Amino acid sequence: MRLTVLGGCGAWPTADQACSGYLVEHDGFRLLVDPGYATLPRLLRHAPAGAVDAVLVSHGHPDHCADLNPLLRARALDDDPPPALAVYAPPGATDAVLALDKPGMLAQAYALHAFEPGARFDIGPFAAETTPLPHHVPNAGIRLATPGAVLAYTGDTGPSPGIPRLARGADLLLSEATYAHEVPAADAPYLLTARLAGRYAREAGAARLLLTHLWPGTDPAAAHEAAAAEAPEQPIGVTAPGLVVDLG
């Protein structure tokens, strides 16, 4: 299994980094997880739009799904359109994005598969296990498994005992870490710190931790230091555009 980071910026993209977006590949199958703001141009550096086999969305905030629209446009308006793209998302999560164009314009470009967080299903060669994790809107933590590797991804989440369960024994925990040490009180139930991400990675026995969804302007070194204080034995990284991680 190979993970390529397209972006990992929280809330809005910066000049240097797109929002959440991850290309996960195995056995020639390309799964795009969370096509957030500005991820399509980064994706096109690695594969043409028509080469994506499926999309998996953790939740409906636009920094996790907005670029589904230009991805579908690139496919639907191509001279030789590819088959309908399988899109997996919680109920209603992609409604706003899919409504950006006139009715019917993109209808043939995708096949929507709604799932309730907590469901299990297969996407190509990946066995997907999801779990509800706390956020401002319904959010699915995602565990993707192949015979040789496991990737766990939190989407956006607040503190939850479901996170170490989701990431148990994973080769990589890709964890939201909006703030390094403390989340403002109003958002404390819905967002995570790098420090707590480190603790969850340690409790889960995850082989590696990759911090993502840092608030724009957050110092990656500060986030790394906060996570390492809780997980001194785990290798820890911070998402950066083009970062590639091979699992298994």
Rank of each mutant, 00 (worst) to 15 (best):
K102T: 11
A177N: 09
A89W: 10
P132T: 00
P83G: 14
A167C: 04
L174T: 07
A107T: 07
A152E: 00
T130E: 01
P70C: 07
E116G: 04
G155P: 06
T157Y: 01
E176V: 10
T178M: 13
D78L: 01
V137R: 13
L98N: 00
S160V: 11
L151Y: 12
A128E: 01
V183R: 02
A76N: 06
T131S: 11
A152V: 01
H113W: 05
T178Q: 12
T154E: 04
L106N: 09
A145Q: 14
A109I: 02
T154L: 11
L151M: 12
Y153W: 11
D187A: 14
A188D: 06
G155A: 10
H113Q: 13
A93F: 01
T94W: 02
Y88K: 09
A74H: 03
L133Y: 00
P81V: 08
P161F: 06
G92L: 04
A109E: 01
V150T: 15
A119S: 14
A149V: 08
G141W: 02
A177Q: 11
A89R: 07
D171H: 15
Y110V: 06
P91A: 14
A96L: 12
D79C: 03
L71D: 02
I142E: 09
M105G: 01
A114I: 03
G148T: 15
P161N: 06
P91S: 09
P82H: 10
A99E: 13
P134T: 05
P164N: 09
L72R: 05
T157L: 02
V87C: 06
